[in-house]
Every structure is written in structure tokens, then in C-alpha cells.
Design a protein around this nucleic acid. Sequence first.
DNA 1: CATGAATGAGCTTTCATTCAT
DNA 2: TATGAATGAAAGCTCATTCAT
Lengths: 219, 219, 219, 219
Amino acid sequence: MEAYKRKLTKKTFDNLSDAKKLLIIQTATHEFASQGFDHANINTIAEKAGISVGSLYKYFESKQDLFLMTIHQGTEVLTNTLQSIIPADKPFAEKCRDLIQAIQKTSREQQQLIQLYSELTSVGNSDLVKQLSYEIESISASMYSELIKEGQRKGEIRADLDPAMMAFLMDNLFISLQFSYSSEYYLQRFKIFLGDDIDDKDAFVLDQTVRFLTSALKN
Amino acid sequence: MEAYKRKLTKKTFDNLSDAKKLLIIQTATHEFASQGFDHANINTIAEKAGISVGSLYKYFESKQDLFLMTIHQGTEVLTNTLQSIIPADKPFAEKCRDLIQAIQKTSREQQQLIQLYSELTSVGNSDLVKQLSYEIESISASMYSELIKEGQRKGEIRADLDPAMMAFLMDNLFISLQFSYSSEYYLQRFKIFLGDDIDDKDAFVLDQTVRFLTSALKN
Amino acid sequence: MEAYKRKLTKKTFDNLSDAKKLLIIQTATHEFASQGFDHANINTIAEKAGISVGSLYKYFESKQDLFLMTIHQGTEVLTNTLQSIIPADKPFAEKCRDLIQAIQKTSREQQQLIQLYSELTSVGNSDLVKQLSYEIESISASMYSELIKEGQRKGEIRADLDPAMMAFLMDNLFISLQFSYSSEYYLQRFKIFLGDDIDDKDAFVLDQTVRFLTSALKN
Amino acid sequence: MEAYKRKLTKKTFDNLSDAKKLLIIQTATHEFASQGFDHANINTIAEKAGISVGSLYKYFESKQDLFLMTIHQGTEVLTNTLQSIIPADKPFAEKCRDLIQAIQKTSREQQQLIQLYSELTSVGNSDLVKQLSYEIESISASMYSELIKEGQRKGEIRADLDPAMMAFLMDNLFISLQFSYSSEYYLQRFKIFLGDDIDDKDAFVLDQTVRFLTSALKN
DNA sequence: CATGAATGAGCTTTCATTCAT
DNA sequence: TATGAATGAAAGCTCATTCAT
């Protein structure tokens, strides 16, 4: 899995000023998130970022690389959230609550990042995509897994549950929730299940999900 | 939501022999599932189905309509599975087991249908897409919701849980599982969480998921 | 010019009931007039006329033939108007007035026919078009020419003017006026010259055009 | 009417060398004039002009814009002729003669431009078409109108004739004459009225038309 | 290094006409 | 004689990528 490693950006991009790098990333993120990978337009991105296509291709090998880099950047933002919640010294149930609350908050604030992530499937299955998905998913996998194990050590979580599998199920719930708050299609579906006033129901959704999750795992 | 209704196929398609209809649906399903909506090629579909493009456009208004029809067809297959499990006279836990087992089975057998479904987001948000998504999701929504309510009536499921919300969380888990067994990207992710030998772990996944779910809801 | 003669309709069409013939002609006229020759759709015409395309092609060799037939029919209507005005026993000036008034009236009532006529140029230059245009134009040519000659015999019109040439100039004026009342583009132009309230100025246009024309020719 | 203004060409076209611009304009003019708007082929134009379709679409938004640009260019040529004749210090009758002579000359030399103009109607009625037609027609409208008014001030033209209406009638005659010398259909018609030896009759046509026109207007 | 003009394959959709029934 | 399903060539337009300046 680790075998193939390639940088997503060329040195030329790394040498850019932070301001310019940020501008390019933001522009690309916006375009990919709003148009989807296929309909995103490289020329438009270059224009909106105030650089030439020629330069863009000096910084990135291809459209795909640019896309994957925006994902990579976005993931850091999301990972940081996990890092700030999971290691805390709190009971499992409270961490669950914090995580779900964070999802509700970031899904709305960082809508584009979630939308980006859900475009990953459109891109085909190059080695690069595999590498990236590994980077992304293995972080969640190990963090949630650790969270479960810790809960089991502390006696909060049943010992007959497999930590990896529970991490997987938790992540499934969290990803679904993220999509439900940010993608148009999943928002639709959210409303079909719960009614149109989703945005007034944050507390309800939070409460019920915490109950569901803690009850599922608790000793 | 019900206001706008349009047939996905023209009468000319309905008049076709069952064999021809099936061939077209299968060909289109395969193309859309393997290439994604944007990269699917109408000319290729026509050629592989042994008809002319002209005819294809006599049967369907547009590429989008053809796509949505394949989804519609596919959904029926999946819905049938639900219909055969949920009304049964069994305890809730057993129905959960049946449902997850069905997911494991159909996700592999009907891989294309799941892939198709995950393409729905690429298509934009026409009224037709909304109508279709409503058809699809509201069936699951109501069936799972009923399942929960029944469990509550029978005292199997805690009364403090909201049936609609629990239906939503269940469906989230099930959809995630479906994707994990059929989409390349989610399969990757599945393996990152649980190791490469996914296909040998059906029983394990089934068992753990049932535990998780029943424990989450049980009284 | 007379060399090539071919019927525009097949015997099969002639054998149809008058009602059916009329329906086909009206439907085709409407489609060609509103869409233009190129964008007119044979299948649509058949459908709206309540017959099959197959039948339509039994009645007419081609789209072009159908079009030319509608023109042919339309011309008769317009020619009738000339026939009713020119032979009358009135002074030249009054006939001019009658002609222009007729143009104002029929251009609005039979808008489609004029629009049809202006599509003749789009059709290319087959022998059939030549034959048809000859039929149409030679009638006006000879009638206006006779009108002038008669005016000259009666001493109403200057003898130094060539009747054929004057007929040509008159017809130019009349055709331009017809277009100005029926084609969208020429109506625009009409308004640019005379202001937006064209429809309130019939009397004015009539009066000024009669003055212009009679003064141009009078002895 | 002036409200909506859009450039017909993109900056990229303006930046081209004059030779290249001219080549593109000429190629497009030829294609549109010979094939008509609908049958003109963008790929053919690009090929004949020695550029790629991609480039053509970098220079022009659409087929329609390319077409309208060729008209716009053509109009300038025609307008220049008016500008050189109408302001001269000559009697009205002589200006008429000059105008008609100019029509006979340019209609043959610039046949394509006239054919182009007669295609304007095929294009539908976008705002762009309206804008362009306004540009074209209002120039003739005001110039002819001024010509009449000047004639009235100088006592050459009857005071009871409305200048705008007379300008309209004059322009009708002139446009008809232009078409008669350049469009195949109208040339046919010309010959039906005057006989096949049109090209030997320039002097005759000129003389008779001047007589007609001056007599129509003179005091 | 930066630029941005140029490329051209590729794709959806239309519609006059045919012909088996 | 009537039908209408089937055909398939044809055309406008897009956009990732290159490369001369």
C-alpha cells in the first residue's frame, strides 16, 4: 500500500508564496466542489486564481493531481478536528457528542471539503488515488480504533466488540452524517427521513445519534 | 414533492419486446456503472445493445432519462429485497441479520446497481432527479421506520428513540455497507479499516454489525 | 423556362378527400411558416396532420416537394386578390389604392403565406424551384405590366416609362411592403423607419404610398 | 433599443494579425453567403481558414456571433458607399443616379454581402440580431430621410411627402434592386419581369429607375 | 519562469427517408 | 394502401494539455 509514493505538487508549487498557494488551493477547491471533477474547468481555475494555465501545469502534472492536492489539503483541516477531540480526557460518550457536534459544525462551514471528498470516486483508480485514500482513511481508522480500545480498557465499551469493526461502523455513521449536511442529494434524503426543518433539529439529531452510538457500544 | 411526475420512458420503449428492453437496460446499466454518468457514451450503449442511436432517442428523451430509468429499474430489485424481509414475523434482531446478509449478497451480485445509485449525485438537480430520489428514499424511510415502531410496540426497542431518526441511522449504516461491498473506493476503505481479507470475513462483519445495531436499539 | 415540368403532388395525394388535403396543406403551411424550411420537421407535420410519415411520403416525393406545394397553394390565394382588383374599371390611382389596401389586409391575415414565400430562397435552386418561381412571378409580372400599359393607353401614365420595368418597380414596392407587415425582421425595420406605432398608421402609409406611386407614373 | 450592447468578437480575435482576421472574415462570409446560415459548417470554415475549431470558438462565442460579425463587417462596406454619395453637393436627381449606379456596381462586386444580409432572417430573433439590425437599418433610415428633407428645403421635393415614409419607400426600392442583382432567386424574378439579358440593361434600368424615383418625389 | 493561444478528438442529439408488416 | 419503427450521418461546441515566445 505504501509502495508507490509520488508528490502531488511539483517543486515549483512549493516555492510559491503562501498567499499564492492558498489562492490556488481555494480557487481549485471551490471549482471542484461546485462543479464536480469532470465539469471543473482547468482554464477557469487558472483565470480565477490570476495565473496562466501554463503556470498551473508547471505546478501540477495534471487536472487529477491538482484535484488530489485540494483533497489532501482539505483532509488536514478535517483531521485536525479529530486530533483535538479524540485524545481529550473525557468519557467516551462525551467524545461522541463532541465528534457529532463537530460534524454538524464543519459540514456546514467546510461544505466544499466534504463535497470534494465525495468526488473522489469519479476520478478513476490511479495509484495516486489509492495512495491518497490510504492517507485519509487510515488516520480515521486508527484514531477511531484507538478510541474504542481506550473505551474498552476503561470498561466503558463491551469487550466482545471488535475495535476495527466498530471504528468502521462509527466512521460509516459519521461520513453519512457529513454528506447529509453538505451534499445536495444527501440533504434531500435527510429531509425525506426527518422532515424539511433539518436545520432546526441539530440538538435532536445530536442527542439521538449519541444515544444510538453509546447504547450500541456501552458495556 | 409529488407534484411533478414524468415517465422516464416513452411509449415506444414500452412497446419493445421484453428481451430487447432487458438488453437495453442491461447494456445501459453496465455502461453507466462502469464509466460513470459523464463518461458513459450513448453511441457505445446503442452499439452494444445492437440498436441505432436514433432508436435510443426514440425510446428515451435524453441521456439523463436513460440513466434515471436504469436507476429506477435497479431500485425495484433492491426494494423487493426489503419487501421480502421486513414484513416477516420474526424478532427484530433476526430481521437485522437478514437485512445485512441480503446486503452482503446483493452488493456483490448487483454491484452495478449500487454503483449506479452512487452516480445519482453527478447528474445535477433536475426535477426528475428529485422525483426519483424521492421514490427511492421514501420507501426505505417508511419501511425502516415501521420496523422500528413495530419493535417498540413489541417492547424489543427502547421507547425513547425516535423511529424516523433511527431509520435514518440504520439506512446510513446499510448504505455505507453496500458501497463498501461494491464501489472500488469504498472497498479500499473497507480494507484499510479491516484488512485485505474482506471476502473471508462476511460472517464476522455480519455478526459484529448485528451486535452493534441490536445493542444500539434494544430495550 | 417551361422546359421542365413536374407535378408537385403524387396521384395518391390528389385522390385524398378535400378535407384531408386541406388539413395536410394547413399543417405544413403552419410548420414551414413558423419554423422556416430547414427547421420544419416532417415527422411533426405528419403527426399534427393525423397521418403517418409513411403516408406523407406516399403523397410527396420529399420535404422540398411538400414545401413547394404549400407555396403553390398559397400563391393562388394571393393571385386571386390581384385578379379581383386589376381588371376592374377604375382609374389607375384607385387601383393602386386598392392594391396597397389589399396588401395591408392580407399581409396580416395571411401572414404565413408571406413568410412561406420568403423561405423560398433557403431551398436551394432545383429545377422545381425555378418552375415554381416562374409560375408565381410571371403572373404578377404580366398583370402589373398590363395595368401600366392600360394606364398609358388611357393617358394616365407617362408614355416614356417602360411597362415591364415599372411593373418590376411596383412589384418591388409591394413585396417590400408585404414583408414589412408579416416578417419579424422587416417589421423591425419598418418601425425603425417610421416609429413603433405602425399598426395605427395604416391610413398614413396607404396615403403616402399612393401619392408616391401615382406621382411616379402619372402623366 | 440601445440598451443591450455586446461585442460580437472576443478580445482574442481583435488581437489577431490583420491578415488572419481578414482571412477568417472572408472564409466565413463565403461559407455563410453560399450555404446560408443553417447549412454553413463551422468545421469547414475553420479548416478553410487554416485554424482549429477550438480557436474559432476562442474568437467567437457561437456560430451566430461569427455570422453576425461577418454581417457587421459587410455593413460597413455598404454604409461607406452611402456616406460618399449622400452628403455631396449635387441635385437630388443626380444623387439618386449615383446611388442606383452604386447599387448596380456593389451588388455584383460584393454579392456575398447582400446574400449574407438576406440570411439575417434565418437566425431567429435574439437581442443580438435586434441590435445589429438596428445598427444597420437606422443608418439608412436617417441618411435617406435627411436626403429627402434637404430636397424639400431646396424645393426639389414636394413638401406634402413625409420624409421618413419616403426614405422607407426609397430603401425598399434599393434593397429590392440589390437583391435582384445578387440573390439567385431574385435574379430569376428580375429576368421574368425584364427578360434574360439583364446584364446588358444596366443603363436602361438605371435610367428608368431614376425617372420613376425623381418623378415620384419632385415638386 | 511565465504566458495564453492553439489544438482536435470526442460527444449528444436531430431528422429526412426507408421498408417490413 | 397505410403505418411508424428504425436508421446513421452530421454538426456545434468543450477543454485538458502543449509549446513558442
